[in-house]
Design a protein around this nucleic acid. Structure first.
Length: 571
RNA sequence: CGGGGCGUAGCGCAGCCCGGUCAGCGCGCCUGCUUUGGGAGCAGGAAGUCGUGAGUUCGAAUCUCACCGCCCCGACCA
């Protein structure tokens, strides 16, 4: 491609509303343009990168026996009612009506359509297993689109689905996907980790996420560098050194005027935060109140609470707390509270003595609380967020926390969808059984954005060969100079003849302008053709990643560069 | 959905407090000449319903109200 004719709108200035590096660079390098909040156009250069990622995904999916298909993104709402997810997705699903007032939605994912296909066409165990996948646009009305293309309302996803006879067969399809995902992300050149995760709206018995380590990530991971334990904080566990057992003390009610938060109470009573009991009140839907006790320096993990209770939960409203406990949030606690209340406590406060809790009377706390003696705890469980410095549950080493971008997520769905939609097959004994399903997603934009987050410098993007929109950037310092132009054109033709994707900067702009643009676009190789070196029959070959350059014979440049690309592409 | 910020030329911004030659700057764009190894120089030029709508006022980019849009933090998030 010749830059003089290309639609690659680069810009020097950082767009004011882009905050993270990938977002800034994707706009500055002319990869994408926003149309509305969370909705982007992929410009020619950006789409070339997307296609390269898609090609890699397609190759690896085909390699595990996946069959590509394409499902409609416009769905009749009825299939979503069958599984209950029309309700569960809530406002996150785009809904619309057709001219006959029939309810439709834009698909946020495709389990329902897959299940509909499966129940129509899978009859026998002989039809299984199947791996079906597509690479297609998804729609989600995110409450808050953000971070450029990392969280958008319309995005491209590779989603695949396994259909199997039983759990064991599902495990095989699941493992194949894990293998394919490793190949995909490794080939893309991403630094990533695999973690245990929560299944959320998808349901099912297990899931793992493939996470790109990045400060821009919305997820937080707990990692053990010693034994490799890795989990999303949604589900991460840790062990805590119990506090050295303080001596039991008598209960004492003390006035704590104006002190409501853990920080305020700790400061007022001159106790450490971890000596306080953090008391929260939640409602197990529809209306059962539950009291949760945590150590003052710990945070509740709602995902764990929800899993424990097996119901949808929500924090109690202030007026509910007042009604249940007789005091406002900030002054409530387990001591002397109504016996009807279920009290759950985090493992970390089991057997702790001489702690401080709210007195269920505004502006009062009680000291000397002995959990075993004074709090009618129904169940102790792991309810807190694991945190950096906690001990690993596997090896005891200190855990670390890191932010990450969710690249892919693989789920063992089981029969949640096949049962509700009646997707069954006949087994060897002629018995009707539900198809066992798995579901597996990859966010294509997130591959691109994560790569840029992990591979950039002050001057711009640093592509690898796997994702680079073009492999070589030809930079004639002065395209108006006849010798330079002839050399540049010859290289350009030479690359075209060898199917090497090359970009030729044939614009009449200053050399500095071209260099800045080339570094911004970040193609792996730059061939710089200047008057001085060309007089010696040489051109300059510059590597974007190392910023090193060498002079090579102009006449051999095409052959030599083609060889370099072939060699480095396969590493 | 809570909290904060923003909306003025294609992009980045000033002007708003204190209403009245305030329609302005930089980059980009167009024309001409010069220039060609790190976002060139000179000269000339085009371009904005000041987000939208009401209101206050003799007069509104500026004050008031409502609405719309965008960004950030939180909630939420397969």
């Amino acid at each position: 491609m010749k830059l003089s004719q290309a639609y690659i709108p680069t810009q020097k200035e950082i767009p004011s509303d882009a905050v993270i590096p990938s977002h800034q660079l994707m706009i500055r390098a002319g990869l994408v343009r926003p149309l509305a909040a969370g909705i982007y156009t992929y410009l020619p250069l950006g789409w070339r990168v997307m296609r390269k990622a898609i090609d890699i995904i397609r190759e690896e999916m085909d390699a595990i026996g996946g069959q590509e298909l394409l499902m409609p993104m416009l769905n009749p709402i009825e299939i979503w009612d069958e599984t209950g997810r029309n309700r569960d997705f809530g406002d996150e699903m785009f809904r619309l009506k057709d001219r006959k007032n029939r309810a439709l939605n834009l698909a946020p994912t495709h389990e329902e359509v897959i299940c509909d296909l499966a129940r129509k066409f899978v009859n026998s165990y002989k039809d299984l297993p199947q791996i079906w996948y597509q690479i297609q646009t998804k729609f989600r009305d995110e409450p808050r689109p953000r971070s450029g293309v990392l969280r958008t309302r319309q995005f491209i996803m590779k989603d695949s689905y396994t259909l199997d006879v039983d759990q064991e067969a599902l495990n095989t399809g699941y493992d194949l996907h894990a293998k394919a995902y490793h190949s995909i992300f490794r080939r893309c050149g991403l630094r990533y980790v695999v973690v245990g995760a929560a299944s959320g709206l998808m349901g099912g018995s297990g899931s793992q996420e493939f996470m790109a380590e990045s400060d821009a990530g919305e997820d937080t991971l707990i990692l053990c560098e010693q034994c490799g334990y890795a989990a999303n904080t949604e589900v991460a566990e840790s062990t805590i050194e119990p506090l050295e057992t303080a001596a039991s003390a008598a209960l004492e009610k003390v006035a704590t005027p104006g002190a409501y938060t853990i920080e305020e109470v700790a400061a007022f009573l001159q106790r450490e935060k971890k000596e306080l009991i953090k008391t929260l009140v939640y409602i197990r839907q529809p209306e059962t109140p539950v009291m949760i006790l945590l150590r003052g320096d710990h945070d509740l993990n709602e995902n764990k609470l929800q899993t424990l209770l097996g119901h949808v939960i929500r924090p109690a409203h202030p007026n509910e707390i007042k009604q249940i406990c007789g005091a406002d949030a900030g002054s409530v606690g387990p001591v002397g509270v109504s016996q009807k209340l279920t009290i759950l406590a985090d493992n970390a406060i089991r057997d702790q003595k001489n702690m401080v809790a709210g007195a269920n009377e505004n502006d009062y706390h009680v000291t000397g609380v002995d959990i075993g003696r004074d709090a009618a705890v129904d169940t102790f469980a792991d309810l807190r967020n694991a945190s950096s410095g906690d001990a690993c549950i596997q090896c005891g080493a200190p855990l670390i926390m890191t932010n990450a971008i969710e690249l892919g997520h693989i789920f063992k769905l089981g029969t949640k969808y096949s049962e509700s939609m009646g997707a069954t097959y006949l087994d060897e004994h002629g018995k009707d059984r539900s198809i066992v399903m798995g579901s597996y997603g990859i966010g294509v934009e997130r591959i691109v954005a994560s790569f840029i987050e992990q591979n950039n410098d002050d001057n711009g993007i640093i592509w690898n060969y796997a994702l680079a929109p073009y492999a070589v950037h030809i930079i004639p310092v002065n395209y108006g100079d006849e010798d330079i132009r002839e050399c540049a054109d010859a290289l350009y033709r030479g690359f075209a003849g060898r199917s090497v994707a090359a970009l030729l900067d044939d614009r009449q702009v200053s050399p500095g302008f071209k260099f800045k643009d080339a570094d911004l676009l970040g193609l792996p190789l730059q061939v710089i053709i200047g008057k001085k070196s060309l007089a010696q029959g040489k051109v300059e070959l510059k590597h974007r990643n190392t910023c090193t350059s060498e002079l090579i014979d102009a006449g051999e440049a095409v052959v030599k560069i083609t060889a370099i690309i072939e060699q480095e592409s396969t590493q």
